[in-house]
Nucleic acid binder design. Structure first.
Length: 311
DNA sequence: TACATTCGTCTGCTTACCTCA
DNA sequence: TATGAGGTAAGCAGACGAATG
């Protein structure tokens, strides 16, 4: 079994750009990438989804720019081919000698369900692949419990590699991969479906964690601001406050950004109406605020604002 | 061109089995 | 040894898009 650390999940926080289909288009999103790859991971899987999806090439089943990963992959494939293949088809005739490992050909699907009823009613094999994938074999007709196939490590590794290249498969790719792995196309298809589901689940967990942290930050910011309001109220009650206060007429509002602008010189007594709007704009965007002027706190939702879809 | 049908594939949910602590 | 939790292969339903008549 492939360990979680080996999955090479690169999770992203995504906001769908267009919800064209069930909100599920995970590729067409703004993404905040969170690469969860452990630093010690081998080079075969370090690029994560985003990077590896950029260069799909199925002319070569497992392309690699890294000679090391190439050799690892080749070795994996070799060991896979010479090793125990729990999914070999019955025609190979050696599956039963591999004790303790179940074969997909011993897999028995549940006979319950509407689809089975439909097919029984039709009485025709309109989908050989699907029928085959359910592993209904002659020698196990009496057993209604489905046995579960466990993919070998090598099969899982190869499937993972493929998934990093493409998270979906076209029929040709599916066939090729199934042939390479000695699996049925339906099994490859199901594996990819489940893999996408796992990826999405992981992403959801990461998103949830991220939102939780945002919420905590906002709560903290809110607490801080409340405290500051209290302090300002207390200060307002003291008479010294009015002595130090600058007349409000020296403050102007920038019409473009709607922020309070500080005149070029605090000693200037010129009313704000005389300030040239152009110079004001120039100054207020390039002049450092007075020391007593508290900087505007960073909007904790800023990362979201940047990522949010424009609607 | 608009419409109905079929087909393949997707996601989401669920079940059943397997492994391991 | 029994058992419960977690992982995962696989089934099913419903939706969607493309192809076809």
């Amino acid at each position: 079994m492939v360990e979680k650390e080996d999955l090479g999940l690169s999770l992203s926080l995504s906001f769908p750009q267009n919800k064209n289909k069930n909100n599920n288009n995970i590729n067409n999103t703004h993404s905040l990438q969170l690469n969860l790859m452990p630093s010690s991971t081998s080079s075969t899987s370090l690029s994560g989804f985003t990077a590896t999806f950029q260069k799909p090439s199925w002319n070569e089943p497992f392309p690699s720019t890294d000679p090391n990963s190439e050799s690892i992959r080749a070795e994996t494939t070799r060991s896979f081919l010479r090793g125990i293949d729990v999914n070999r088809l019955p025609s190979h005739g050696d599956m039963e000698e591999e004790a303790g490992v179940s074969s997909p050909n011993s897999t028995i699907s549940s006979v319950s369900g509407k689809r089975s009823e439909r097919e029984a009613t039709n009485g025709e094999e309109h989908d050989l692949d699907r029928d085959c994938s359910r592993g209904i074999s002659d020698e196990e007709d009496g057993d209604t419990s489905r046995k579960k196939l466990r993919l070998s490590k090598d099969q899982s590794a190869i499937l993972e590699d493929s998934f990093k290249e493409h998270n979906t498969l076209n029929p040709k790719q599916k066939q090729a991969l199934a042939k390479q792995l000695g699996l049925r196309p339906r099994q490859v298809e199901v594996w990819f479906q489940n893999r996408r589901a796992r990826t999405k689940l992981k992403q959801t967990e990461v998103d949830c964690e991220f939102l939780k942290r945002c919420c905590e930050n906002l709560t903290e910011e809110n607490r801080r601001l409340q405290k500051e309001v209290q302090e300002l109220r207390a200060l307002k009650l003291s008479p010294q406050f009015y002595m130090q206060m600058t007349p409000p007429t020296t403050l102007t509002m920038c019409p473009s950004c709607e922020r309070v602008a500080v005149p070029p010189s605090s000693s200037s007594s010129a009313p704000s109406s005389t300030v040239d709007p152009r110079s004001h704009h120039h100054l207020h965007h390039h002049q450092m605020p007075p020391a007593h002027h508290r900087p505007i706190p960073i909007n904790p939702w800023a990362p979201f604002d940047a990522l949010r879809p424009r609607s």
